[in-house]
Computed example of a mutant assay.
Amino acid sequence: MAQHVVFCPAPSPGPSFANLAPPLSPWGSRSPSLYSLFIHNCPLCGVEFEASQCPFPASYVPSHYTDHMTLRQRSANFLLALLEPLSCRYLYSGVNPIASDVLQRETTGPQLMSKTSIWLMCFDFSPPAEKAQQFFDVFRQVLQRVVWRYIGAVPENPPENVKVISWLPQNDLLGHPTVKALITHGVIHGIHEGICNGVPIVMMPLFGDQCDNVQRMAAQGVGKVLSINDVTSDKILKALNKIINDKTYKKKITKLWAVHKDCPVNPFYLAIFWTEYIKRHKGAGHVTAAAHELNWIQYHCLDLFTLLIILVITVVMATVKPSDSVFTIAALRSWRTVTHFHLS
């Protein structure tokens, strides 16, 4: 079931509550008394781009590739971009009637999310027991100590160098100077924490944006990517030893860390600022993209292209028609001359 948190700030004019809800839930609608803050739980069909009207050109914004794509990859990326809206309609087909019934008006999931004031992201994952056992087998063979955030069943004889806990301050641990590597399924938060602490990463994507995330990291040379479908203890061990012992990975992610750290405002305080900004300005409707007011034809400039085509055709016809008339008259005169010659 979807989880919701309602924040109650100090009394002030206008809306005084913020509704925090996952985007898969129809209950997060923004109403006159609520500001919507959606938690991004990694929708599978890119609905966040449709709802926010964020530009997503398939020519250079990749899905499961890097931003340097071959012709074949761009073609596949373009086809995926065409199919994603159809998958969104299927995934949210059950949400639309529920949302319409609750709100007593015709609406859809993406329409509800288009009214969102701010987007947040939250992810969670725990591997199945058989996969978890592979990790325990690997950790038993490494020399380093392992801290693992794991909420599944722990075997009877876990490795002595492994500490399993249900929650851990991952960012704080990654900031310790003795940390050698991070294993993650490619969620954007874990990758950012790895980058911001300069820790090489072993990545095993599962779904959503994770495949895209790990391919970009692999292209930067800061980690190794494994497939969860055919991963084995031996593959995990080799990848882990590779990024720990090969100093190239550490060097490249340190360079990437320097790039990400070079920003004027700490992202944590920037998130606080924008959350409070929305409250101060009553939803901050003035920063909403005008794209929400355009229809599909206007959004893709099809009306403009149609007008340009009509203008080009008009100019061509106006230019070519007099020449055609002269050519026709000349042809008729030649025919008359030939006819007169034969008659004579």
Score class of each variant (00 low, 15 high):
287 V>C: 06
31 S>M: 08
320 V>A: 10
145 R>L: 12
114 S>P: 06
323 S>T: 08
145 R>Q: 14
189 H>E: 09
285 G>D: 05
89 R>F: 02
303 D>R: 01
124 D>F: 08
56 F>P: 00
121 M>G: 05
169 P>N: 14
210 Q>C: 09
331 A>E: 06
183 I>T: 00
290 A>T: 10
34 L>K: 06
75 S>F: 13
301 C>F: 15
147 V>L: 15
96 N>W: 04
72 R>A: 15
173 L>I: 14
206 L>V: 09
24 L>D: 06
104 Q>D: 08
53 Q>V: 00
272 I>Y: 01
42 C>I: 09
177 P>S: 09
294 L>V: 03
240 L>K: 04
148 W>I: 08
315 V>S: 04
339 T>C: 13
54 C>S: 05
242 K>S: 06
220 Q>A: 04
222 V>W: 00
155 P>S: 07
313 I>L: 10
214 V>Q: 01
201 I>G: 00
226 L>N: 07
198 G>C: 02
155 P>C: 09
278 I>M: 10
117 S>N: 14
334 S>Q: 13
76 A>S: 12
284 A>W: 07
118 I>L: 15
273 F>H: 14
176 H>Y: 06
168 L>D: 03
250 K>I: 02
3 Q>I: 08
281 H>T: 13
76 A>W: 11
294 L>P: 00
325 S>Q: 10
54 C>H: 06
333 R>S: 11
203 M>S: 02
332 L>N: 08
116 T>C: 09
329 I>F: 11
210 Q>W: 09
298 Q>K: 09
73 Q>H: 12
44 L>I: 11
186 G>C: 06
172 D>C: 08
128 P>A: 13
123 F>L: 11
60 Y>F: 15
65 Y>H: 11
30 R>G: 12
268 F>D: 07
234 D>Q: 14
182 L>N: 02
236 I>T: 04
179 V>R: 00
100 S>L: 07
93 S>W: 05
147 V>D: 04
180 K>T: 04
87 S>N: 06
52 S>K: 04
98 I>W: 12
40 H>N: 15
326 V>W: 12
315 V>T: 13
38 F>Q: 05
189 H>P: 00
22 P>R: 07
130 E>K: 07
125 F>K: 14
241 N>I: 02
124 D>E: 11
338 V>Y: 09
296 W>Y: 08
325 S>F: 13
314 T>M: 13
280 R>I: 10
311 L>D: 02
23 P>A: 06
188 I>A: 12
113 M>Q: 06
226 L>V: 06
171 N>W: 13
77 N>D: 06
28 G>T: 05
49 F>S: 04
83 L>D: 03
337 T>R: 11
303 D>Y: 01
1 M>R: 04
334 S>E: 10
299 Y>T: 07
96 N>V: 07
189 H>Y: 09
30 R>A: 14
268 F>N: 05
16 S>Y: 03
117 S>L: 03
221 G>N: 03
120 L>W: 05
340 H>R: 15
23 P>T: 05
142 V>T: 12
334 S>W: 07
3 Q>P: 01
340 H>S: 15
151 I>E: 14
153 A>E: 15
238 K>W: 03
51 A>K: 06
341 F>G: 04
61 V>T: 12
117 S>Y: 01
321 K>T: 12
6 V>H: 03
136 F>K: 04
123 F>V: 07
327 F>K: 10
308 L>Q: 11
153 A>D: 15
233 S>G: 13
